[in-house]
Write a protein that binds this DNA or RNA. Structure first.
Lengths: 192, 192
DNA sequence: CGTTCAGTTGACTAAGGTCAATTCCCGTGG
DNA sequence: CCACGGGAATTGACCTTAGTCAACTGAACG
């Protein structure tokens, strides 16, 4: 599991053996049971996580309604940078959809990571940029696309994830109620 | 006009007289006629602009449809950081809704600004964070709110802007066609 | 005065929300 | 092995709202 993380970092910047030890010392293992929150609305996001096992979702709660806008699975970094970086309360939640195993690093340890590892700043910037742009695209897509095309896109891009979660969560991601998703499925299955 | 910019910066970090001169030398005046693009879809965003006069909108073009998701008016910074920072082609457009006067700084000059002015990095980070979070909130709101509540929010928060632009652009921001916006107005005016 | 263009209104369609009933799936206990 | 229970998913009936197309209104301008 730690090897997945080292490999993910190594894909971007080369780590010496000593640096690998530092990474190992800074990231702490943590588990979340299905349904538990990695980050709750109103809390400050205090860690960046790296998923070694499991599946999580990002969602906004708006008067009792869950609106799921992104997922994170194995080998993904998990963080609400919008809260983590300025250290302000989050407006989003991040929840485990399955039992999860993660390696996580705190804000302070991340500063240490930046200081003690060559090109770590570059790595951090690239990860943030990627997460930032990904988040913008996830959110934009609700704006520009219809529920139907969002569902078809999910079919194409994340067929594996569809097997791992309930209609309820899929519907929330697509932007409709489970009943409507059911109708969309009926409509579009006929089209092929 | 340059004073507005100096004041905006001075609100966050204190500038010496020499530093003010540097700012003046790095930001170049530029005008855009109504309808012209500050940034076009597919281009790399090469400048950060500061609006001294006029009004702009951010929009996504999705098969022929304009989707306006944000505005910038006097004293706002204008930039698509998602393109500017990683220097990759933009998926968004930024257009002048009125004749605009702007002060703009290029990517390279911004690096100079960071190097030659005390705490400029801090200023830059704060501006980016603010724009980033603002963008996320603008986009999230399409996700979590109905057109009707988006319109009411705009009525409350930007009554001034409503006077400055056409129903077409307002409707695009609210997320519906002009005809539907017209109906929303009729519905909600009765409610009060 | 017409012309033009934005904004409004009407009639109709399509799609999602809501509520309720029904079916499907799966695990448990008899 | 089968019957039952419970939650998830589907379906039906009906409502609300946005899209579409077309007609109309009204104000600005020459």
């Amino acid at each position: 599991m730690i090897n997945n993380l080292l490999e993910s970092i190594n894909n971007i910047i080369t780590l010496s053996t000593a640096e690998k030890e530092i990474v190992i010392s800074l990231f702490k293992a943590h588990t979340y049971k299905k349904g538990e929150l990695f980050l709750a609305d109103g809390q400050i996001c205090k860690h960046v996580g790296f998923v070694t096992k499991g599946l999580l979702r990002y969602y906004i709660n708006h008067d009792g309604e869950d609106k799921t806008y992104a997922f994170a699975e194995e080998s993904n970094f998990v963080c609400n940078y919008e809260s983590f970086i300025p250290r302000t309360p989050s407006t989003k939640n991040i929840q485990a959809l399955e039992d999860c195993e993660m390696l996580q690093i705190s804000y302070d340890d991340l500063q240490l990571f930046y200081k003690s590892i060559n090109h770590a700043e570059r790595f951090g910037r690239l990860v943030i940029e990627q997460v930032f742009i990904q988040t913008l695209q996830d959110l934009s897509s609700f704006y520009t696309e219809t529920p139907e095309s969002r569902y078809e896109k999910m079919l194409r891009k994340h067929p594996d994830l569809l097997q791992r979660m309930s209609q309820y969560h899929i519907a929330s991601y697509v932007g409709v109620k489970p009943q409507s998703l059911s109708r969309i499925r009926k409509r579009t299955s006929g089209k092929k």
